[in-house]
Structure formats: C-alpha cells, structure tokens
Write a protein that binds this DNA or RNA. Sequence first.
DNA 1: CTGGGCATCT
DNA 2: AGATGCC
Length: 741
Amino acid sequence: MDNSEDEVEEDETEWRSGFVDSALLSPVAAPGPSLNKTSGPTPAHRVILHFDLDCFYAQVEMIRNPALRDIPLGIQQKYIIVTCNYVAREQGLTKLMSVTDAKEKCPQLVLVNGEDLTHYREMSYKVTELLMSYCPLVERLGFDENFMDVTEMVERRLAQTPESNKFSFKGNVYNHVSADVTASDYPRLALGSHIAAELREAIHSKLGLTGCAGIATNKLLAKLVSGTFKPNQQTTLLPENLSDIVGCLSSLRKVPGVGHQTAKKLQALGLVSIQDLQRFPLNELVTEFGGPVAQRLKNLAIGVDDSPVTPTGAPQSLSDEDSFKKMSSTKEVLEKIQQLLSSLVERMNKDGRQPQTFRLTIRRYSATNKWFSRESRQCPIPNHIGQKIISVPVFSCNISVGSSDEAVEQLVPLAMKLFHKMVDSSAAFHLTLINVCFSNLQTRGAAASGKGSIASFFTHSTSPKRTQICTSQRQDDSSLSGESHCMDHQLSAHSRITPRTTQNTVTTESPCSSEAALHGLKWKQSSVVAAVEDPPLRKAYSSTARSDPDEKSNTVTHQLPPNVDPEVFKLLPVEIQKELLSPAYVNSLPSTSTSPSAPVEVPDVPHITKNKSPQSFTDLQNTEDIKEAVNELDPSYRLTTVDHKRPPGTSALSGENVMEGWRLSLPRSSDCEFPGNVDPEVFSELPPDVQRELMSEWKQQKPVLKTPSSRKPARSLLTKDRKAAGKGSQANSLLKYFKPS
DNA sequence: CTGGGCATCT
DNA sequence: AGATGCC
C-alpha cells in the first residue's frame, strides 16, 4: 500500500495543508485547545527558511585555528566526539561517536576539547543577529540552527523584482532537476530560495561560516528539506513533493518533535513508519497522548505544521554544568560549584540582567538508567546578592566594583544549602553531574539601564538605527518600505563589508557612551584591578554590604583544603566546614580524572600503539607531526592541552585571591565540638535562619537541614507572557549575545 | 563510554 | 520539580 497514485496523494495533502495552515479556517484544530497558541493568524502560505550550519563546533574551531582546516578534526566533550569536520567524516566518523571508536576509524584524528561553549555561543548569536538584521522573525533551535519567516520579504520582492528573477530557483529543488523546474508556479518559494542564497552568502562572507538552508512553506518541511544536500547547499521543497519528503523518513524518530519517549509510545501502538502514523485513527492517538499532541502528531505525519516562527530573543536562563564519572565528597562538590558559579556569574554579568532564581541540578549515579533522573532544587536569590552579580559602574569611571566575586562567595553557600536538600552527605553518594542555573532574569532598572541598551550598540557591528528598525518592528506591516530599504541596502552591500567602527555613530547618542564602550572589559578590570590593585576601593564598597570590622590573620587558610576560599568557607554551615576539614577530606583524592581541567590528550599515543595494527606507527608519526606543526603555528593554541574552560589563574575563588575580613578561628584538631570552634562575632553576623540551623545541629549532632524559615517566593504569573513582555525590552539585552567578548 | 545547553509544558 | 525534546 505505498503511495501508488502520486498525484492523488499530493493533491490531498496539499489540500489539507492549505486547510490546516490557514488559521482563519482551521476547523481541524478548532475542537481541541489549539496547540500553538499563536495569537495572530498565520498567513495562508508562508515562506519559511531553515538554516543549519555545517558541523558548527568544528567550523568555529577551524576559524580559530586555520591549521585545523585540512586535517581530520573532532570536537570532544568527555568521551564523545560531538561533531567533526568533513575531512573526518570522509573517513567514516559521525556525530556522537565515542572517542574510542573515532580513533579506531581515524587514528590521525585531532581532537579539540569542546566542553566550554563560550566561543560557540558567541558565534551562534552572531549568526542569529545577522539573520535578524534582514528580518526580525528569527527563531533559534540550538546553537546552529535558525528558522526564519520571510513571507513578507518575499511579498515585497514579488512586487519589486523583475520577472525573470521570480522564475528561477537558487540551489537544489527537492526531487527535481533545478534547471528543469517550472518555477513560475512557485514564485514565492523561488524568491525564498534567492533570499536563502543571499543570507548564506552573507553568513559566509561576514562570519566565515558555511551551512545548509531549506526553503518550504512551514518549519517542519523547511527543516526536513534543509538536510537533503549536505554540506553547504540549500534545497527548496515544492508543495507537490510534500508527500515525498515526509514519506522518505526512515522512522518516526526522524520527525522533529518525536523524541525518544514519543517514539516508544508510538511503537507500542504498533507504529513504526510515517505511513503507519498517517493511517492510524486519530481517536486512538488521542487516548494515548491527549487531543493537542495527537493532532499535532497526525499533522506532522502529513507534513503539516502551522506553528509560527517565534522570535527567540535573549535566553531565559543561563546555566553551566559539568559531568563526571564520580563525585562523592562534599569538598569536591563545593569546589565544582565554585568553579561553575564563577563562570556563570561572569556570563550573567555580561548579560546585564539580574537573575531572581537560582537552581542547582544534580544527576546521581545509578547502574540502571544512567542518563535520566536529574533532581533539582531552586530558591529565590536575595536581592542584595543578585545585585552583586551585576557589577555596578562607579560614578563616571569605567572601573566597576568587583562585586562579582562577592556574589559568587554568597551564592556558594546558597547552592550548598540546595545541595543538602537533595543529598544527605552523611551517607555515601555518587554524583555524575552538577548544573547551576540562573533564571527569572530581570532587566535592570529603567534609569540605570545604560549598560544593557547602550553598550549593546557599541559592541555591535551594525548601526543602531538599523537594529532599531529591525528589532522593534515586529510584524507590523506599516513600515514595509523601511524594512525593505534596510534589507536591500544590506543585500546589495554585502559584497563589501564595512563594520562601521561603531564609536562615532553612537557617541552622539549618549553621554555615557565611553562608559558603555568599555563594558566588554569590565569584568577583567573588576577582578584584577579592584581585587588586587585597588583594595581600598573594593573594601569601601564591600563594607556597605557586610559589617566587616577589621582584617584578621590568615591562620586558618593553611588548614583549609586547597581551592577553598576562606571567605566562602566562613559562610558555610559549620557541619560542612567540619566535613571539609576532616582528615578524610584533606587527604582525599584530587583524582577526578575526568575533570575538565585534565588535559585532553591528542592523540592518545599508548592507546593507538596498543590498539592498532603495526602500521599505525606511521600514522602516529604523522599525527605527532601535525600536532607539532599546529602548535607551532599558534602557540596560544595547544592541541595537547586544549582546555578552553578556564585559563589558569582566572578563577575568582582561587586560593590566592584572599579576601579580607574573615575571622573564623578553628583549632587544628578540626573535628571536635563546634561551639568552641566558632567565633561568636562571626556567628552573630550569620543570617538568622542559618544561626537557627547551626544551633539545632549542635544540639542534635545531626544534620537538620530543613529550614523552617520562610520560603515564600510568592510567585504568581511567570509562565505565559513571553511574547509581550519579552520582545520590547528583550531586544536590547539580546544584542549582548551577538558580540565578541 | 551520551555532551552541554536551551525551551516548553505540566 | 520533573519530563520531554532539540541541537
């Protein structure tokens, strides 16, 4: 029962497609709650583009180090090659292959550690920004994909462009010989293919990245078709071939939106192919998945997708995580949390918004079902801490208070509290992942918003004017000519890129411009200048937050485990302090061999000689030669120890960064009675609930970590209003993600 | 020997 | 808080 009659099938799906895609009619979706709560009606026929960058991480690394261009390159996270360049793919490597398998297939493979996503994130937002500069309707999907609704652009071009251009397709046309196509039937898709080609060219010329694009009438089809001709090509799907591309999906898992769980449920219903799902009665699907999901699945199976391209904007949460084989001591947890928080606070600082919520997530080891079962606890961030995450400009000077370090110091105890809500550290535990996350991000005060709005224009490679036009316009059709002008200017000018050295364009707009212009350097200044060279300044400000009488000796420092900041230590619950000081931990292993700070070996010499045939010796030589050559080309880029995670000595909480004013005196025999070990002054400065907690622990000799205190965030509506609340204010903060650091 | 993010829905 | 999905 294959699709015997192509024309009948196509006609039917096309009819349904038009039927469902037009929200004005849409009786199909009417009975149940509409799956996409798109407010506005979606145009009857849209032109949707899907961009998918080629082996994105690998491309970024090859740009950073061109010596990697022509050698097989894999991007490694832990034991996985998450992606690899096309040189490596020619030798059989695929995405998400284990390092072991990869090296077996390709002994010369050069690996770069890709656990730090900073560079990928930055480049990713540059791409989104570039697309947005042509049309604001851009939706991100991961770091390397973007949807774009160019319907209005197409309509405008339809009126403007000469006839001859309307009737040719750029790039491939699915299931057609491109030159052969009767493009006059699909002038909009044809123009969409022109736009896609221009945008891909812009991405290439301005950012140096190649990628694929799909052109179709909805997101699902655009995404499906974009990958049909793989590296650096584009493909248009004509409506007449809708059933072809859907029918070609080898399994239901290939349908975007059908994940592991959904596929398993469908398989339990006896469905394995797309055709199975197409024919399966809707009612039975409803009982299994509920109305909306069932209808959505049915629609997807026939290539129907009326979900709108929703502009993504700035992220709603920032998180940082690390996975490892085993973590089983509080000391390790504390250090890892410090590490993660340092980098997360730094990112949050650059963002400029103030997080209202902090979340800690862990994954426990379990022999069965290793990959799920994450647990998390979250709590509101006290305002006085949240403010410190954002560094505050000092008067008219560009130097800012080094408050980010303090923010980390105060967040660590918060995180440890959450940790102990999940893990009873008096019993054995075994974690394999820790994640820290800021969410509920709040744009900062109206008046002092110089940081967010103005800085973005400076760090931004495009003119403020154009950004304003494109981001504030939304979907209004009122200023078509304006956007069109903007667009055409861009398109015609992209052969010559003039990044407009920003300074002069914006200086006129705000007296704070010089302050904002240096914003990108602020973090460095705050951590170096404020903490080291300018202690009085820093102290003056820290004293406002904390009554810190005088500086005291550092006697305890030497007793602390390495990398534990005494300032932080002081703030920890005594039980944790005790745990950290106990001989078991002091002597305990620093041996998390999977730690990201451990150098990644490229290539693994003993492994190769052991595993491979005798001839691999020559390969080994070659690889070594390549490695050395690459290292010599760029000394800052060490293949053997590629670790972008954290340059040495930049940790805000490294041991040498000694803070003033901690004064907790503990005896050498660290694990004796608490009250004698605790400085009354310090105790009196602790928050009341912490005091209560400590008291109860001393009395009971038991970790009672329930805070009876007030955890009443009084949260109400934070779910829905992404569209309205987001866009306007979000446009500014979004730009921050578009700029190099 | 399946990473490190992100989002949405419940 | 968790599940699920996407890359």
